[in-house]
Each structure stands twice: as C-alpha cells, then as structure tokens.
Design a protein around this nucleic acid. Structure first.
Lengths: 332, 332
DNA sequence: TTGAAAGCGCTAACAA
DNA sequence: TTGTTAGCGCTTTCAA
C-alpha cells in the first residue's frame, strides 16, 4: 500500500480510503489511486486490515459440516457460500466425521483465523466450550441439530413431523407391520425421526414390534445386512421406513437382492439423486438442505448486523415425494 | 498474548516460543505459559502472526471448484482437506459455476486473505492473470483441466484414454453404431473425451455418423431431450457413450421413458452413487476424484517445501466399472 | 479533502 | 534460557 501511495503521490490514508470505498475523497484523487493500484497489481491484505480494525472483522466465516463430501452437507455449504458471497465474505469449510474432537479442533483452527461467524452441525453432547468463542465475539448458528448444554440459534428440519408423515403414508396404503431402520440412536436427528415413527404408529393404533426395529446402522452395508436378516426371518414386515440416506441405500440393496423391491413398501428420510430412476422410484421425505443453509447464513448475518434478540429455532419443512416404492400395497 | 505473558510472569517472546513449539524454553517455564494460556482461553491470532512472519504464511489454502455441491468437486475438496489437516492448514472453498469472472473474484478474495496456495479447477481460456499471483508467492495446482495460456502443475484424469476404453468396451460387445453425447464442447474435458470416442471409433474402423453425435448438453434435461429425439429417429444407434454425469442421467431417463433401457447399451463417463442399483446397473468409466485431490494437495505441499523442479502434469487413471448397461448386445 | 502518527498482535533479530 | 526492540500492512484518531 505504501508503494501505491508513493506512485499515486498521496498518503497511505488516502489509498486506504479509496480502496475501502470510504467517502470524502476527490474523484480525481481516487482515480489516480485506482490506477496506481492496478498498475502494481495491489491486493489489500485482509489480515493486516482486520488486525487494525476496531471491529476486527476478517470477512471470513467458517462452516463446519459432517463431511463436505456428502450431498446434504455440501448442499448446505453451497447455500451458505451463496449468501456469504453476496456480502463479500469467504468461507472456510471443514469436516467432522461425527467426531467431537475434530469439532473442537476445527473450531480452534477457525477461531485462530478469527472468523466472523460459524455455521456448524454440532456433534457430541457438550458444547459449553463454545461459550468462550461466543464471548470472544464469534457469532454462531447451528444447523441440522441443536448443540448440547448451551443455547443458540438453530436451523433444523422437522425431523419428527417429517418422519411421522412418511410412516403415515405407509399406513394410508394399508400397512400395519412397518419396520424402522435408522442411524446411530445417539444422534439427535435419529432420535427425532424414531420419535416420529413411534408417533405415527401409535396414532394409527399399531403395535411397535421389537423385531421390526433396527437402530445404529452406521453404514449402508450394516443396514443391508440387518434388513436382509429381518426380511428373511419368519413373519417379516410389509413395509420399511428408513430414517437416513445410507440406511435407505442399504435397504434398497437388500430388497433388490431378495427380489422383494416390488413387494415390500419403502419410504426413506432424505432425498437422493436418481431416486426417480430406480425401479420402483423411491418415495422419500425430502429435506431442504439449501433452505437450511440459506437461513442459517441469513441468521448469522442478522447477528452481524446487530440483532441481539433471543436465540431462535427455525424449523424448515420437509416434504413427501411420492415415486412408487411407498405406494406398494401390503402382501397378504 | 500480553495477558498470557503477564499472568505467566514471562516476556511476550517466551509466550510466542511456547505457543509455537519453538525449542529453547525450560520445561517449567513452558508449563507456566501453557497454564496461563488455558486459563485465559487464549488463541493465537494467525492474522497477526502471518503479518509479522518472514515467510508470511497464513496456514490456509484456497480450493476453487466447479461447485462445492457437486459430487466430483466435493470429493476433491474432501481429499484436499484431509491432506491439509495433517499439516495444520485450513481450507477456504469456493464455487465457479463455469464462470471465469467468478474465478477471478475468488482468486482475488483468497489472495487478499493471503492463502499459501491454491488448488483450482480452471475455467475459461486465459489464465495469464494468475502470473501476478504466482509472482506474489502463491503456489497453485490445477485440477481436472489445464489452465489456458500459462504453464503450471496439473492433475487430471486420463479423459481421452478413459473415454476410448469405454467406447471400445461397447465395440467389443458387437456394437457398430455407437452414439456420443457430451457436455459443452468448449470445455477441455469434453473435448478430450470426444477425442477418445473418435480414437476408439476409428481404431475399430467404424464410421462416425453425424446424427449419432450430440454436443453441448449443459443439463440433464437437454441431454434427455436430445437422446429421446435421436432414439426416435429412423435408424437409431444401438449403443450410447455419455461423456459426463448429467448427460448420463439425461440419457438414462430418456431410455427409461422409451422403454429401451434393456435394449440399448450405455457406458457413461464418471461414476455416481447407486449406479449399481439401477436396472440394468450402469457401466461407467470411473474417475478417481479423491486421488486427484490428494495428489494435487501433495504437489502443492511439495512446492511449499521448496521443490522448484519444472511443472508436471499428473494423470490419474480412470477405470471401467462393469455393471450391465454396457454389456447389452446390439439389437438387429 | 488530505495527511501524520500511533498501534492492532505477533515474530525476527539481536542482546543479555 | 530469556528478554528487548522494531516493525509487518493496515486503520484509527486527530490535526491541518
């Protein structure tokens, strides 16, 4: 910046004013500065800027996701990026892999880089350590799940209601033996979806049978094995509600290998690419990941802008997408 | 840091030494400092650090991808993150959407934040503007495609050879009328895959028919429409080579709607989730996105570490995954 | 409308 | 082994 000032024949402060679009600079002066900056390919140093600025803003935010590679996470990531770009912020991203230690490491790493705010999917049960960050002035919004033992702004899917809708859809097609297969039950969303399943079953006066319940499928292959075993057992259910994407994939493979894909109904939680091209098409309860990301980013920016109203929990609606697999009638 | 020094009863410099793991500090002193830092929840300010350091490193790198939400991009992103984490770097990520202006904006944004290096999928035809960045000390590695009008380290898939392998697979199953459907021909990878198609056709002494060639499908629905029209025309081809994921999806939908999915063979370039669950399973030429990301990051780090050997082009092999659709024999 | 001086939090260079 | 001083590139504060 010194070089630019020298070349333009003005002071440091004038260059700073021009490059930051501050008012009170004569047009002719501003043009000289712009020219000099371009000739020298000058790029403002944001690190130095944020060091000196009174608000310390870095124009950078951090996004901490389950895994930047998974479609749900990356859809949120993209939506946040979009909102951030409009305001001139860049986005640091990191993956958790459901590991609370990684979460802390990522928070620390982003914190050392003085991000203005954090959009995060919390993992683990205790997030009190974040109070320190918050006190240091880092805003944060939680997505997908609520944090543990602290309050905060949260944007989530209507997991329980959505799951109940999916199960009721099966009920409405005549099923009475509807099995549940879900992810690790210690995960908040898994609990909520299971609760929705129970709501719908009880609401229809259906008994929840122990043997029709599968929990803790941490991979598609575990789900496939569990569903295969269940369907091979005596007196199998006539329909399946799978509460997570990987679980749905495993169940689909199991049904396919058993030749049951047209005889056992299935509704999955969470949409996926090509669900319409499978045979039958897969009926799902679709989450709106883009809306979650967008609203989380917007909440964050409203905090940046000084909104200090109480924390809110925003619930983004899921929606039933009917494609065939959920409309298979029960086989006597 | 001043507060930590005061609390531990040592000088600033000693705190700096301890927090950066520099040698030459008595163990007892180090412990006092660590304790004080913990009690004050102190976090190093990386911005200030990089401002003062002689190498100016920020311990941050930038990843510029087609779209952080697409599976290929996000697989690269994740692989880069993994390598970066091992070295204590964080990752800024951004999406291009095939727009050269966005590329420049992202480069400028990351550059202002003084990233140590850049992993990027170049878009557009002229990347000479990057020479300035490079001169300023930013290392960069290009993935998926080579940059235009400048040299650089590049990590790519063997697009041409991979496409030829896919087409030869169809030839080996008896096809002589093999259609090509691809993305925007101005995209480098689209050109290379088309070249591979031509290689394989000529190598088998097959005539390339104008009506069997579809270019510039920028979306699945465009591809679907084009393939539908082609298959409905008189004398349609007996096999399809689709050179890009979205194109494959469009073609699959078209074949399905025409009831031809078991009569027309198809090989796609690029793998996708659930390809095995479709009926028939979809035979593809799979790219190894994780390997591309990993090797790009490793190349970047070798540059960080002082490797100043000439630029290299690393080619990551694709691999044919046989699942059914590519093995359908020609219908007379 | 413009500029001079101070200092953000840290590390380099050197001194003790 | 530890400390002192200067200064990275910028914005703030205050003065002209």
């Amino acid at each position: 910046m010194r070089d630019v000032a020298a070349r333009a024949g003005v002071s440091l402060k004038t260059v700073s004013r021009v490059l930051n679009g501050e008012p009170g600079v004569a047009e002719a002066t501003a043009e000289k500065v712009q020219l000099a900056a371009r000739e020298l390919s000058f790029q403002l140093n944001f690190g130095a800027r944020s060091l000196r600025r009174s608000d310390g803003r870095t124009a950078t935010l951090g996004v901490i996701l389950e895994n930047v590679e998974n479609p749900y996470s990356s859809a949120i990531h993209r939506a946040v990026e979009e909102v951030a770009r409009e305001r001139g912020l860049s986005v640091l991203a990191g993956s958790l892999d459901e590991d609370p230690r990684r979460e802390r490491a990522l928070v620390a790493a982003f914190s050392s880089r003085r991000v203005d705010g954090l959009v995060m999917m919390p993992t683990g049960a205790d997030h009190r350590y974040l109070l320190t960050e918050r006190q240091a002035g880092t805003f944060m919004v939680f997505v997908d799940r609520a944090p543990g033992l602290i309050e905060g702004d949260v944007v989530v899917t209507d997991n329980q209601a959505g799951a109940a809708t999916g199960v009721r859809h099966l009920v409405s097609h005549g099923h009475r033996r509807i099995a549940f297969a879900g992810d690790l039950l210690q995960i908040q969303t898994a609990q909520q979806r299971y609760a929705g399943y129970l709501d719908a079953m009880r609401g229809a006066d259906l008994r929840v049978v122990q043997q029709d319940t599968i929990h803790d499928c941490t991979s598609a292959s575990l789900a496939e094995a569990a569903v295969t075993a269940m369907m091979r057992g005596g007196d199998p259910p006539t329909a399946l509600f799978t509460a997570q994407n990987f679980v749905t994939f495993g169940a689909l493979r199991a049904l396919r290998h058993l030749g049951l894909q047209h005889r056992v109904a299935l509704v999955g939680f969470d949409d996926f690419a090509l669900a319409d091209l499978l045979d039958p098409g897969v009926t799902v309860v679709a989450q709106d990941a883009a809306a979650i990301g967008r609203r989380a980013a917007e909440r964050l920016f409203s905090r940046f802008d000084g909104d200090d109203s109480p924390y809110t929990v925003e619930v983004v609606s899921s929606r039933l997408v009917v494609r065939g697999s959920g409309e298979i009638p029960p086989v006597a």
